[in-house]
């Protein structure tokens, strides 16, 4: 869908264009709201140790399953640990994993997609058939399959995200490369004898950046959800690392008596996901004005 953006003759984007882009993006209030959410979460994640009032692993048997109060903003869990502090540290875990996984998928997928799309022919066929194979698995099923082999762990989840999201980036990058391949500026670079890798990474990649950024943003939302889901299912982040998903697993047994135990971690997962989704939608509208989504 979001594959057509303006292609320019040169690789750089001049400033006025950037400003125009920023203006049109900022007009989308929902997306700006999303950006605000993400920036806040980003700050919280970076400064979790400074912000958190308690050490996330410290158990306090005098304060078991206490409701939200000034002392414990989000209440405490069954071991008397401060849920607010655990949520902050949980963000660190989930953000690290998602960032790593999405970046890995971006690098792998974009390289595959650009190469396949630019070279075409046999390379394209082979690469895209491999991508088709990965796409044949529902993403969580693929993740579970890989985890069954790798064993459940934080780094396992990161790797799994990286593999599972590679096909999406490959497809987006390929379709951009295929259309850019026919552009005049690429043709003239070829005539001038620029090397293939230079054309692909210095010239085609910057022009395909719009749809790729949209994909990154939306995959970030998915990545956070998947990471939390895997932890919830018990095959993701393992104790003692704090994890939002696992807090929900533990908390759901106390729903009737201590709602805060699962509700706050659940909401905490939603916030960055909403943020990335609205930013992604906003960027897509801005890059691709044909879509009348507003």
């Amino acid at each position: 869908m979001a594959t057509e953006i303006e292609t320019q003759q040169t690789t750089g984007r001049d400033e006025s264009q950037l400003r125009q882009f920023a203006e049109s993006f900022l007009e989308n209030k929902l997306a700006v709201f999303g950006l605000f959410l993400i920036l806040s979460i980003g700050v919280i994640t970076l400064f979790a140790p400074q912000i958190a009032p308690y050490e996330p692993r410290t158990q306090n048997y005098d304060a078991i399953l206490e409701g939200p109060s000034a002392e414990h903003l989000f209440g405490t869990d069954n071991l008397g640990r401060d849920i607010f502090s655990r949520v902050l540290y949980g963000y660190q875990t989930v953000m690290t994993i998602t960032l790593g996984g999405v970046m890995m998928a971006f690098v792998l997928g974009t390289s595959i997609g650009l190469t396949a799309g630019y070279r075409g022919g046999w390379t394209d066929q082979a690469m895209m058939r491999a991508v088709d194979v990965l796409m044949a698995f529902p993403s969580l099923i693929l993740a579970l399959a890989l985890i069954s082999a790798l064993g459940p762990s934080k780094w396992g989840v990161l790797l799994v995200l990286g593999v599972a999201y590679t096909p999406i980036f490959a497809r987006v990058a390929r379709s951009e490369a295929v259309s850019l391949r026919e552009e005049q500026f690429v043709k003239s670079l070829e005539v001038r004898g620029a090397s293939q890798s230079r054309i692909v990474f210095r010239h085609i990649l910057p022009n395909a950046v719009g749809p790729l950024i949209v994909t990154i943003t939306l995959q970030f939302a998915f990545g956070i959800l998947t990471t939390a889901t895997l932890s919830f299912l018990g095959v993701g982040v393992q104790p003692p690392d704090p994890s939002l998903g696992r807090m929900l697993t533990e908390g759901k047994d106390y729903l009737a008596t201590a709602w805060w135990y699962s509700i706050f971690p659940g909401l905490a997962i939603m916030i960055p996901v909403i943020g990335f989704n609205t930013i992604g939608d906003g960027l897509r509208d801005t890059f691709d004005p044909r879509q009348v989504n507003r």
Partner: peptide, 18 residues
């Protein structure tokens, strides 16, 4: 639309049960 794609399934499931 936005809520639907942003709520983790396990969270909405747990809330519905509650």
């Amino acid at each position: 639309g936005i809520t639907g794609v942003s709520v983790p399934t396990f969270f909405s499931g747990v809330v519905f049960i509650a």
